[in-house]
Simulated scan of single mutants.
Amino acid sequence: MVWSHSFRSGVARAGDFLRDHQRAIRGIQWAIVVVYVALLAIPAVMPLPDRTASVFNNLTIVAQFAFWGVWWPFVLVSIPLFGRAWCGLFCPEGALTEWASRHGRGRAIPRWMRWG
C-alpha cells in the first residue's frame, strides 16, 4: 500500500514537471524535428557518394548512418523502456501532429487520405 502511494505521488510530480516546463519541452521537440528532417533531407539532396566515401569524409553517409544506425535503434530500444513518453515527448511525428492539430482548420480528413 505504501509503494502504491509513493508511485502515485511520483507520477503526479512527473506530471507537474511536464506541465510546468511545457515551453522547454516544445523547444526540445522542435529541435528533434529539425534534426530528423535534416537526417532525411541531406541524403535526398546530396549527390550519391562514390565507392571511397565513408562516415569520415561524406555528409550523406554520416546522415544515413545517424538515421539508420543511431536514430532507429534508439527508437526501438526507447519504446519498450519509456513507452508513451517517446511518442508524447520526443517523437518528431508526434510534434508535427500536435502542431497540425493546433493550427489546422478543423475540417474533416479528405476521403482520399483516410485508411480503408
Rank of each mutant, 00 (worst) to 15 (best):
N58L: 04
L81S: 09
Y36I: 05
G106F: 08
V33R: 00
H21S: 08
E98Y: 10
Y36R: 00
I25D: 00
R51Q: 09
N57E: 08
E93F: 11
A24Q: 12
H21D: 01
P49G: 00
I32N: 01
Q29N: 04
R107A: 14
S54Y: 12
R111K: 10
A12N: 08
R8Q: 13
P49C: 03
V2L: 11
G10D: 05
I32T: 05
T97W: 09
V75H: 01
L89Y: 12
A14W: 10
R105E: 14
R13D: 15
L48W: 06
L76I: 01
N58A: 05
I79Q: 04
A31S: 03
S101K: 08
A108K: 05
I61W: 02
A108G: 03
L81Q: 12
P92Y: 04
W3Y: 03
P47L: 04
H21F: 07
L81T: 14
V2F: 10
E93V: 15
R114T: 04
T52D: 13
W86F: 15
H5D: 13
I28Y: 09
F90Y: 10
V70A: 09
D20F: 08
W68D: 07
A66G: 05
D20H: 14
A24R: 10
V34I: 15
T97A: 15
I42Q: 03
L76Q: 01
F7A: 10
G10C: 06
G27N: 02
V75G: 05
W71D: 00
W30F: 04
V35E: 05
P92T: 01
L39Q: 03
Q22C: 06
A44W: 11
A66F: 07
N57F: 07
V75R: 02
G27M: 03
T97V: 08
G106L: 01
T97P: 04
W3V: 11
